[in-house]
Design a protein around this nucleic acid. Sequence first.
DNA 1: ACGCCACTATACCGATCTGTGTACTCTGGA
DNA 2: TCCAGAGTACACAGATCGGTATAGTGGCGT
Lengths: 184, 184
Amino acid sequence: MTPGARRLLEAAARLFYERGIHAVGVDLIAAEAGVTKKTLYDRFGSKDQIVVEYLADRDERWRAFLGDRLGAARPATAAGRLRAAFDASKEWMEGTSPRGCSMVNAHAEITDPAHPAAAIIAGQKQRMLDLFTDLAREAGAADPGGAGRTLMLLHEGALVAHGLGVFPDPIPHARDQALALLPV
Amino acid sequence: MTPGARRLLEAAARLFYERGIHAVGVDLIAAEAGVTKKTLYDRFGSKDQIVVEYLADRDERWRAFLGDRLGAARPATAAGRLRAAFDASKEWMEGTSPRGCSMVNAHAEITDPAHPAAAIIAGQKQRMLDLFTDLAREAGAADPGGAGRTLMLLHEGALVAHGLGVFPDPIPHARDQALALLPV
DNA sequence: ACGCCACTATACCGATCTGTGTACTCTGGA
DNA sequence: TCCAGAGTACACAGATCGGTATAGTGGCGT
């Protein structure tokens, strides 16, 4: 990826997340990246493609971020990894404007199920569900599938609540409730 | 409200929900309502005002819908009303395209906190949190505030999961988990 | 019969949208 | 030294955006 393309993707990611996808035009993205529209279209071909790469990149970064906090010599118990997953979400959200989950927000704007971004969004959520199901199974839950779905709901709800600002610190609250669900 | 205004609001509500707010133009709204843009601007003055009235109307309808299922000679116990609240959400979602919560989706597109729609969204979520807190208190929860927040997370998570289609029937699942949280 | 009001029809405004074109400059490596 | 790729500057296309103007139609109550 060329330096200009990288700056374009960074600018697009920030603008899309903070202002919404439809509300941001390519002229603004190019200007914020210190690049002309010509460069933008030479590198990405279309705005839709920028949207796709924005989501794919965010997905990949989150995957690496979460994997780092769960894998290797990190928490040994399933409960420890579950706690680490929620803490990772909290840490991920801090530092950015509290606008909730970029995948959920993008899904609110991308209506067409055939849009390539839809698959990225669905894939990210499926992986989170799989993770929670695996953690529930490792923790010895009687019904790992059901427990995983419950953990998923708590997690998604916490991200939404964080974005909406319904009440303070929803992610730690969800984490504590999630931990209470695991068998003792 | 004149017949044209009513049709405009109905068309706008359907289009905003199914396609997103920014993706829908005033020309389309007027055309779908069988009305000219002149009428649209005579009745509402601006697109923003249509957005506000769309959300306010949906909020009011949901309020009435939920109140009908919770109030009067309906479920006598707090657990019964909690169950009814989740069932109301499920019923509310059925019949429309599975796009999740209109308030959450609108929040993804409306960035400006000063936008009058933001207050409507925040108010709706606050009322839901209050409801869940009240139900938790009535059910005899040791910490009604904390329990109410947990119920809120389950509910919001279920709406999001329903919109994203992460797994089938998330709302009944959330309902069962919510009921399990109440003291026996 | 009259006037009011909701609404239609149509043309237009300036701005912004995505996307394309040509011509030129800078920079790093072979 | 030369060349290819990355980027700049700028002009423009066609479409659509939100919003406004003028002129005319149809129904309904008084």
